[in-house]
Amino acid sequence: MIKDICLDSLDEDIFNKDKLVLLMFYAHWYKPSMETLSCLKQIDVKDIDIYKVDYNKYRDLSKGFEVVSIPTIVFLKKGRELSRYSGTQTIKQLNIIIDKIKEVPI
């Protein structure tokens, strides 16, 4: 399940979590963003919290994560960035990326 980001609970939802977090920076008007978001919705991932971040609506957050292109996916654990990927991702690519990230020791 993909959740909308909530600035009021950033620390609780993202920065202080022991669980793996995926942030998907997107723009609703940009087709590659929506294609990647659609692929993310089709992936069955129970052990990762997925949040979508509207690049235009949350510019300060996007700037804080140094997002310079969309779509961008950022993986975090305990507030620490593990990896990021920019550009359109297919379901197959996302599955490979997620499997690879799960193996990263913290």
Rank of each mutant, 00 (worst) to 15 (best):
D49Q: 10
I48C: 06
W29V: 09
E35L: 04
D18W: 01
V53C: 03
V21L: 09
P32N: 09
T36V: 14
Y30D: 07
I48D: 00
D49A: 06
F25M: 10
V21S: 07
D44T: 11
P32R: 14
T36W: 10
N56A: 11
L40K: 02
W29K: 02
D44W: 00
I43A: 05
C39E: 15
L20A: 00
E35G: 02
S38L: 10
M24I: 10
V53W: 00
L22Y: 10
Y55H: 14
A27P: 05
D18Q: 12
D54Q: 05
K19E: 06
I43Q: 10
Y51A: 05
M24N: 12
Y51K: 05
S38N: 13
K19G: 00
T36P: 13
K46P: 02
Q42G: 13
H28V: 11
S33I: 09
A27G: 14
L20V: 05
D54L: 06
C39M: 13
Y26S: 03
K41S: 13
P32Y: 00
Y51W: 01
C39L: 00
I50M: 12
P32Q: 10
H28W: 06
Q42T: 10
L37G: 03
D44P: 01
L40N: 07
V45R: 00
K31G: 01
C39G: 09
V45F: 04
Y51T: 15
D47W: 07
S38P: 03
S33G: 08
Y26G: 01
S38D: 14
I48Y: 02
A27N: 11
L20N: 01
M24V: 12
I48S: 04
I43V: 15
Y26V: 09
C39Q: 14
Y55D: 07
S33R: 01
C39Y: 03
I43L: 12
V21T: 11
S33Y: 03
L37F: 03
K31F: 02
D44G: 03
K19Q: 14
D47K: 10
M34P: 08
T36I: 14
Y26W: 01
K46C: 03
K52C: 02
K19L: 04
Y26R: 05
L37R: 01
Y55R: 14
Q42A: 14
I50K: 11
M34V: 14
L23A: 06
D18N: 15
M24L: 09
C39N: 15
P32T: 09
L37A: 03
F25K: 15
K52Y: 01
L40R: 08
N56G: 11
D49T: 09
V21H: 04
Y55C: 06
Y30K: 15
F25G: 09
L40S: 04
I43T: 06
I48M: 06
I50R: 07
L20Y: 00
S38Y: 03
I43E: 08
L40E: 02
N56Y: 05
E35M: 11
V21M: 09
Y30V: 15
S33E: 00
E35N: 13
Y26Q: 02
E35K: 15
D18T: 04
K52Q: 06
Y55W: 12
L37N: 05
S38G: 07
H28K: 13
V21Y: 04
K31H: 07
M24E: 11
S38I: 02
L20W: 06
Y51I: 13
N56S: 13
V45Q: 13
L22R: 08
S33T: 14
P32L: 04
K19N: 09
S33K: 08
D49H: 04
Y30R: 13
K41L: 07
